[in-house]
């Protein structure tokens, strides 16, 4: 592995030749915006926000999918780039509901961030908007298709776990959408509610329903905790306000950690004073259940109880 030297916005970076321009820039603290790039996912190249100018070419190039080269001179925030990014954000906003006030993702939404950064705003128009399709079938995930920006992250992250692969794109052109299973509801689909997709969705299209309406990102504190349910040790965030824990959400999966519902519920049970009732999917239906069943520890508890009872009897 060789290193190369390149200049990004006047700063020199010496990085591995296998990095992309975006990775090189971020490694020296230059934040190139991107909606679909995620270091744990396959490079998708859909949002086009990460465009940069590279001297010697008058084309805009996406930094997520351009490898660094020795001597490259890269500019990441020229007027041309800024105006193109503004246009891209504007295009997304023109199809997006003006709903930031009550959106669960407000404050941690990338679209919001970039709208602010490039000064784009909602506006009235008579053209098409993304259809309002809301999937409320799951007690764990709320899906609002009208907010989806089709970054593909959810599809790619779900695809990474070979026995899940629930999400895919369907239709084409402006009608393109992400679907669960064979365009089913979350409940009917084979989705296991691991919330990988929720954790990577940059906007309010997929949100954790158990956090909904309780607390938003900026409205309290978050602590990262590690799940103890299995050896993977996935990470969750515990949201709290005034020292009271309010919600547990999945952090984006990394290093092969898969995330699962059981682990999340176990973490909820551990950290929350009054967690919502648990549900499990039985025959494509979500049904309310007991914590021991949800965590799959009914037999264990029974055994523990029996052993303890036996112990007591022996002691007596």
């Amino acid at each position: 592995m060789s290193t190369v030297k390149l200049t990004i916005d006047g700063k020199v970076a010496e990085v591995s030749s296998e990095l992309t321009v975006l990775q090189a820039a971020r490694s020296i603290g230059i934040d190139i915006p991107a909606l679909c790039y995620d270091e744990t996912l396959e490079i998708f190249g859909a949002c086009r926000m990460c465009i940069v100018e590279i001297e010697g070419s008058n084309k805009l190039q996406t930094s997520c999918s351009t490898l660094v080269k020795n001597g490259m001179i890269v500019h990441t925030e020229t007027d041309r780039i800024k105006s193109t990014r503004k246009d891209i954000v504007q295009m997304l906003l023109d199809s997006h509901p003006n709903d930031c006030l009550t959106c669960q993702k407000s404050g941690e939404c990338l679209l919001q961030d970039y709208a602010y950064r490039y000064d784009a705003n909602f506006r009235n128009h008579h053209g098409a908007m993304r259809p309002q399709l809301m999937d409320t079938s799951s007690p764990y995930i709320l899906r609002d298709n009208s907010k989806c920006i089709l970054c593909g992250k959810c599809v790619l992250t779900c695809y990474q776990v070979s026995d899940r692969q629930v999400l895919s794109f369907s239709e084409r052109g402006y009608d393109t959408k992400v679907v669960f299973g064979a365009d089913q509801t979350i409940e009917e689909s084979p989705c296991v509610s691991c919330n990988r997709c929720v954790a990577v969705c940059p906007v309010g299209a997929l949100v954790d329903k158990r956090q909904l309406g309780k607390i938003r990102n900026w409205d309290g504190n978050t602590t990262v905790v590690m799940c103890k349910a299995c050896e993977y040790g996935c990470e969750f965030e515990v949201y709290s306000r005034n020292k009271e824990n309010i919600a547990v959400t999945a952090k984006a999966p990394s290093n092969g950690r898969p995330l699962c519902l059981k682990g999340r519920l176990a973490t909820e049970l551990k950290y929350l004073e009054n967690p919502d009732k648990p549900y499990i999917k039985i025959n494509e239906r979500f049904e309310e259940t007991t914590w021991d069943k949800a965590l799959g520890i009914t037999e264990l508890i029974e055994k523990i109880n029996r052993l303890e009872k036996d112990n007591k009897e022996e002691e007596e």
């Binding site: 859909a46 891209i88 199809s95 089709l150 084409r172 052109g173 402006y174 393109t176």
Partner: peptide
Amino acid sequence: SVEESCGKCVPCREGTKRMYE
């Protein structure tokens, strides 16, 4: 082009639609 866009990237999916409108 609007009909045949694969819908993957923002400028083509959204932009051609607006131009058509």
